[in-house]
Design a protein around this nucleic acid. Structure first.
Length: 292
DNA sequence: GGTAGACCTGGACGC
DNA sequence: GCGTCCAGGTCTACC
């Protein structure tokens, strides 16, 4: 079964695949040339399918090697549309970026969209698992969660879908610690249980009607999510007015503008303040003079 | 508002 | 092989 979806131009699937490390985290995968994005996905019907996403004229083609019902086709379209930000219009950002040599590359390369998970729950879990660990640790922890709790793909049981909140919620803190989540285990378990029981509606935070400060406040109230993680999640729902300041930001900003001396968080914020609603994207895609 | 220390793990390094 | 040190962001206590 093949679905075609159009995107707001300019569009590049390769740019989205390379936008950050999400493609390296299960159940995403891509080919070395970044022309094919795959993902094992559990549909609301309970079926587990593999999505094969390629760039097509004006958007993407999504192949699923199973026949889907009408509702399942609609669900796949909706999820891919969100994951790739197909409806996102970044023209105001590009207008500003044209004036900045360090961002002159973004529009020609169609940079700006950031690969997302279908649910904010999955993105929140993954963001928590990026904190206070090396990237290899994040990959190991996500792999452990997906392998242990996610439903297997029938045609290849070695690959699993990302677990639902209920699947993680049914576990316990000790088991989550055992599979390598360490001190993050209670945060992940608490998040899964609150989403599963309905006391925390993360998907509601994607709605346009909520002001960014309110979404930011609600994200910070989640155990395990601090300023960095909240800013990352805001970026992932298309709100770019917060900077995800991590240890790398301190190094890069120090080298870029302060001659290598230690900088404070407020000095980092000051360098991107004039980008207003687009400061997150400006920071994310900035062509640093010195890459470490 | 800023700072210090605990949390946990893997990797690098020295012996 | 073993022990030590370090990196990474959040949270809490404290100033």
């Amino acid at each position: 079964m093949l679905l075609t979806l159009s995107a707001c131009p300019p569009f590049s699937l390769r740019a989205i695949i390379g936008s950050h490390g999400w493609v390296q985290l299960a159940p995403f995968a891509a080919d070395p040339q970044a022309t094919l994005l795959t993902r094992v996905e559990r549909l609301e019907s309970g079926r587990v399918v593999e999505l094969h996403i390629r760039e097509a004229r004006g958007g993407v083609a999504v192949e699923v090697r199973d026949s889907l019902t009408g509702a399942e086709r609609e669900e796949v379209s909706r999820k891919v549309w969100w994951m790739l930000g197909l409806g996102e219009d970044l023209s105001p950002f590009y207008t500003l970026a044209r004036q900045e040599p360090h961002l002159a590359h973004v529009e020609p390369q169609a940079l700006g969209r950031i690969l997302r998970s279908p649910t904010l729950f999955e993105d929140a879990v993954k963001v928590i698992l990026t904190t206070n660990t090396a990237w290899s640790g994040t990959q190991r922890m996500v792999e452990a969660l997906v392998t242990r709790y996610g439903d297997p793909l029938p045609t290849n049981p070695a690959r699993n879908a990302f677990p639902t909140p209920a699947q993680i919620a049914a576990s316990d803190e000790e088991t989550l610690r055992t599979i390598g989540l360490g001190y993050r285990a209670p945060s992940i378990l608490s998040l899964a249980r609150r989403v599963a029981e309905g006391s925390l509606d993360l998907e509601a935070l994607k709605r346009d009607s909520l002001p960014t400060p309110e979404i930011h406040r609600r994200l910070l109230a989640i155990p395990g999510i601090g300023h960095y993680a909240a800013a990352c999640l805001l970026m992932l729902i298309g709100r770019y007015d917060h900077l995800p300041v991590d240890s790398n930001a301190y190094r890069m900003v120090s080298q870029e503008w302060y001659g290598g001396r230690p900088v404070s968080r407020s000095e980092i914020e000051a360098q991107f303040e004039h980008w207003g609603d687009w400061k997150g994207l400006a920071y994310w895609f900035w062509a640093w003079s010195r890459e470490d």
